[in-house]
Amino acid sequence: MMLPEQSADALGIDVPALLAIEEGHRRIKPDALDTLADLYRYAGTQALRRLLAQHLDHAGVVRDQEPGHAERLAACVDSATGVRWQSTVFLPGPLQTPAYAQAVGEVPVTRPGAPRQPGGSAVYLVDERVIQRSSDDAALMAEQLERLLSLLDSGTDIRVLPATGSVPQPAGHLVELHLPGGPVWARPGPDRVDYCATLGFAEAITNSLTGTDPGFSSEALSRAAAAHRALAPSPRRAPSLSGNPPPPAGRPVPSSPRRAP
């Protein structure tokens, strides 16, 4: 509930300078970070100070492995005007239900749904073998896939990369964020987020997108959901997805007509 003029006055700068900091065009100093964190009642100041003090390593990476790294990435995703998120091992973080995130060993982030900024764009690419993954809890996977179908019906752009595709995919998560200060690439993991500055990731995502088809994506999600529903035991068992490797490429999945929206 503060005016920009009040925050700028607390920092001893003018409003344009404050906006430049907020938009990533001006680097914030540690003492200014402390002032803003106090004004905005943010508790993770020490983690941000340590992250601010880091420099790019030899691979052009800054690593955030402080507590709250998943929440900080989620804030970046929500602030981006464009998001391209590719996953080849687990489902993209913004699409995960809390139960799925817990089962695969990732940090669940409470959110109303996949981000779709006004005037912005978001696309999520998923390897087909991820949604075909067999597990000890088919009911959990069926529930997660039903959520993906619901998001797809509501307009979220979810693309499934065919398991037989010829384009090699980088393992894990690959996230491209279009932030006010410019594009940033991230590789989130269970215990950290690596922030990178490389156009190679953008090329990899673009190559993946060229091999997807919205019609195939919808059908692939529907087939996988039907297959897991057919395998779901009753009553539901405890989740355990993280230790099961994806099935071989091209593994057949029982077909099922798309459910009614």
Results as ranks from 00 to 15, higher is better:
188 P>Y: 03
142 A>D: 03
9 D>I: 00
86 Q>H: 13
229 R>C: 06
194 D>T: 06
24 G>K: 06
4 P>K: 09
95 L>N: 00
171 A>Y: 04
138 A>Q: 06
96 Q>E: 10
169 Q>K: 09
101 A>L: 08
26 R>V: 03
78 D>Q: 14
89 V>D: 08
43 A>V: 07
184 V>D: 03
184 V>E: 11
9 D>H: 12
30 P>W: 14
94 P>G: 04
92 P>I: 07
22 E>L: 06
89 V>E: 15
220 A>R: 03
84 R>H: 11
242 S>Y: 06
155 G>R: 12
32 A>K: 11
202 A>P: 01
161 L>V: 15
45 T>G: 06
127 D>M: 02
142 A>W: 02
75 A>E: 14
110 T>S: 09
194 D>Y: 00
217 S>H: 12
164 T>A: 10
184 V>W: 01
229 R>G: 02
136 D>T: 13
132 Q>T: 00
211 G>P: 00
260 A>D: 13
240 S>N: 08
56 L>K: 06
78 D>T: 07
31 D>L: 03
259 R>Y: 01
173 H>M: 10
148 L>R: 02
74 A>Y: 02
4 P>Y: 13
217 S>F: 14
188 P>Q: 07
60 G>T: 09
166 S>Q: 12
50 R>K: 09
44 G>L: 08
234 S>D: 11
183 P>C: 10
139 A>G: 14
70 A>R: 01
43 A>H: 13
96 Q>P: 02
92 P>H: 05
216 F>K: 00
215 G>Q: 13
81 T>F: 04
105 G>I: 08
104 V>P: 00
150 S>T: 15
52 L>I: 03
59 A>D: 15
151 L>A: 14
44 G>T: 02
66 E>I: 03
116 R>M: 13
153 D>N: 11
210 T>L: 15
82 G>I: 07
50 R>M: 09
258 R>G: 01
229 R>A: 14
44 G>V: 04
197 A>M: 09
240 S>R: 11
43 A>Q: 11
212 T>G: 06
176 E>D: 10
213 D>H: 11
221 L>V: 03
7 S>Q: 10
60 G>C: 12
154 S>F: 01
176 E>Q: 15
218 S>Y: 07
174 L>Q: 10
43 A>E: 15
247 P>S: 08
96 Q>A: 01
133 R>N: 01
23 E>M: 09
191 D>I: 10
193 V>A: 10
216 F>V: 01
90 F>R: 04
259 R>G: 13
165 G>R: 03
63 R>P: 00
261 P>V: 11
64 D>R: 07
251 R>V: 02
136 D>H: 14
40 Y>E: 15
120 G>W: 14
197 A>W: 12
141 M>V: 02
204 A>N: 09
